[in-house]
């Protein structure tokens, strides 16, 4: 077993070994990490450097045999330049940063993974880990998108669903696949019927997460909600700069998060309301 973690240092250059279109405007990149390292944990992130263009935090969708899987959607200048990169090109990574999702051991719970868009990347790695856990527990994945062509990892989740390894609840705004409507509505219907304790693992737009948080609070059977605030602006990724810090606790999303649990989220008054810009100013979410 390899014990080493990646050192916190300048970007480590990784070769792109595969690039595939995942869904509309979104690509999966596989990067070869040149040093043998311990696996990434679900919810952790990397700072991805597109040489000469930009660097930004990105979720980890998979890590096996030193191959790192990330999902990239066109969002700005940095991601646009990144999508032009081809197999054989190099990208820099720093990480793996942050605290991961925590799954309870030896307690029978329903694992409810809820996400949309980019948020599906850490949830993919979490799914991989959960289905390999020895204790059989129910896994439900709720994914929301505008339409079928924007559902990330659709084939992958649907395949696991068909194999009986999890239950996939797809939701689209236009009804082109799965439930027609927001995942929040589908989730609440599910919660009314499900038995036993449940834990939420959520990643996606913060407004959506706040709505899910408010739903979860209404049900005692939801024993914990873990949410990823990784899509906030970050500079350093390892705690120095504080541009990602939340009020009033002073927690840095990159080090004290990005995964926060129910108790922590209740203390973060910014959650779902304000985020910080690169100037340090606050902007309403």
């Amino acid at each position: 077993m390899i014990k080493q973690t990646l050192p916190n240092t300048k970007p480590i250059m990784c070769k792109i070994v595969d690039k595939e279109e995942e869904c509309e405007d979104t690509y999966t990149f596989l990067l070869e990490v040149p040093v043998e390292v311990k696996s990434a944990k679900p919810g952790q992130f990397i700072m991805l450097w597109v040489p000469g263009v930009d660097e930004f935090p990105i979720g980890i969708a998979g890590f096996e045999n030193n191959i790192l899987e990330i999902g990239i959607a066109k969002m700005g200048e940095g991601t646009e330049a990144l999508l032009k990169k081809e197999i054989g090109d190099y990208l820099g990574i720093r990480g793996f940063y942050g605290k991961p999702f925590k799954t309870p051991k030896k307690v029978k719970v329903n694992h409810l993974l809820i996400g949309g868009g980019f948020g599906m990347t850490p949830l993919k790695l979490l799914t991989t880990n959960l289905i390999h856990q020895e204790e059989k527990q129910e896994i439900h994945v709720f994914e929301g998108a505008r339409n079928k062509s924007r559902l990330m990892y659709l084939k992958w989740f649907q395949h696991l669903h068909d194999e009986g390894k999890l239950i996939f609840h797809a939701c689209t705004d236009d009804g082109s696949y799965g439930y027609k409507g927001f995942p929040t509505v589908d989730l609440e219907k599910f919660l009314q019927e499900v038995e036993g304790p449940s834990i939420f693992y959520v990643a996606g737009p913060e407004r959506m997460m706040k709505a899910i948080f408010d739903i979860g609070k209404k049900y005692d059977k939801v024993i914990d909600m873990q949410m990823s605030l990784a899509d906030r602006y970050m500079r350093c990724g390892f705690g120095v700069c504080s541009y990602c810090a939340v009020d009033p606790t002073g927690w840095r999303i990159c080090v004290d998060g990005p995964i926060f649990n129910t108790k922590q989220l209740e203390q973060i008054t910014d959650f779902g309301v304000y985020k910080r810009l690169e100037t340090g100013e606050k902007e309403r979410i």
């Binding site: 300048k10 500079r235 350093c236 700069c241 541009y243 100037t279 340090g280 100013e281």
Partner: peptide
């Protein structure tokens, strides 16, 4: 960005944040 990263081998940091601030 990149505007801050560590240099592991010399236990140091390099930055070029450039006085980002809210005014």
């Amino acid at each position: 960005n990149p505007s801050v990263f560590a240099l592991h081998e010399i236990r140091s940091l390099i930055n070029s944040v450039g006085l980002a601030n809210p005014g």
